[in-house]
């Protein structure tokens, strides 16, 4: 019991230190811009745009809230690796007996909480801006959708973190993947409206089914079990791939002694 408590304490300390270092709390401009201004700006930008295009705003506002959650997690977890490298602690972390995946998941916890806050703020503020109201019960129905999205994005974030271990360019991966999610999952604009065909790509991405479930919950108050299961399956595949990639990158670093391969 005492060991479990000590372990939980270690996890909390690692998570807090990593999180505090990320946004330089002495000057919280970065936090306000990334977690508050950006999600609201994205929601307003795409909300107005899609409203002009289709006459319907609310599905896009839900989609941008989902993207805010995903973005906070993907960038946060990748930056956790980049900061360890910048502070010179990545080598020590790698050399420590802690399991790399466990250490990374500990660092991911605050970003999940942070992502949920960003999503709530994005949705709340954009609903105020666009004068949209939703029955309170619908938000409860949406909780499983957001939970499953957070699960699948954790898997994708592990993949991106593996890339951040392999490469010194820690922002390129999340930037590109965020763009792919924005365009190809239907979060902002229905895939059928895009001027190019994406074939089977959307089905392979996290968020495609999850954002559909979130929209179904917040627009119709219905729990879309099929979409939730699909998102869960995709998330599990990404989690397996991400854990494997992290373990591979970790082994490569230990064997070669290099903390970046490019």
């Amino acid at each position: 019991m005492r060991q479990a408590l000590r372990r939980a304490g270690d996890v909390a300390t690692v998570a807090w230190l990593s999180y505090r270092a990320l946004f330089t709390w002495l000057n919280p401009v970065g936090y306000v811009a990334n977690r508050l201004v950006q999600p609201v700006a994205v929601a307003t930008l795409y909300g107005v745009f899609v409203s002009e295009l289709t006459g319907r705003t609310f599905p896009t506002l839900v989609g941008t809230a989902v993207l805010a959650l995903a973005s906070a997690m993907m960038f946060g977890i990748s930056m956790a690796i980049a900061n360890e490298r910048q502070f010179g602690t990545l080598e020590m972390w790698i050399a420590s007996p802690q399991t790399f995946v466990a250490g990374l998941l500990a660092r991911a916890v605050p970003h999940v909480v942070d992502g949920v806050l960003a999503a709530v703020l994005s949705l709340g503020t954009s609903m105020l801006v666009f004068h949209v109201s939703v029955p309170a019960a619908y938000f409860l129905v949406a909780v499983p959708a957001f939970a499953v999205i957070a699960y699948s994005v954790t898997g994708a974030s592990l993949l991106l973190a593996a890339y951040a271990v392999w490469s010194r360019d820690s922002l390129g991966g999340p930037n590109v993947f965020k763009l792919v999610l924005t365009v190809c999952t239907g979060s902002v604009v229905a895939v059928s409206l895009l001027p190019v065909r994406l074939f089977g790509l959307p089905a392979l991405l996290p968020l495609t089914a999850g954002q559909q479930a979130a929209k179904e919950a917040l627009i119709a108050g219905r729990l879309d079990g099929g979409s939730l299961v699909r998102e869960l399956v995709v998330g599990t595949v990404y989690l397996a791939l991400g854990s494997g990639a992290i373990a591979w990158a970790f082994r490569r670093v230990r064997v070669s002694g290099l903390v970046a391969f490019r």
Binding site: A33, N34, Q38
Partner: peptide, 17 residues
């Protein structure tokens, strides 16, 4: 302001609007 660089992420979409 050295710690302001992180703030630019939020400005891009805002000004794009």
């Amino acid at each position: 302001h050295r710690y302001a660089s992180g703030g630019v992420n939020g400005l891009f979409e805002l000004i794009l609007l």
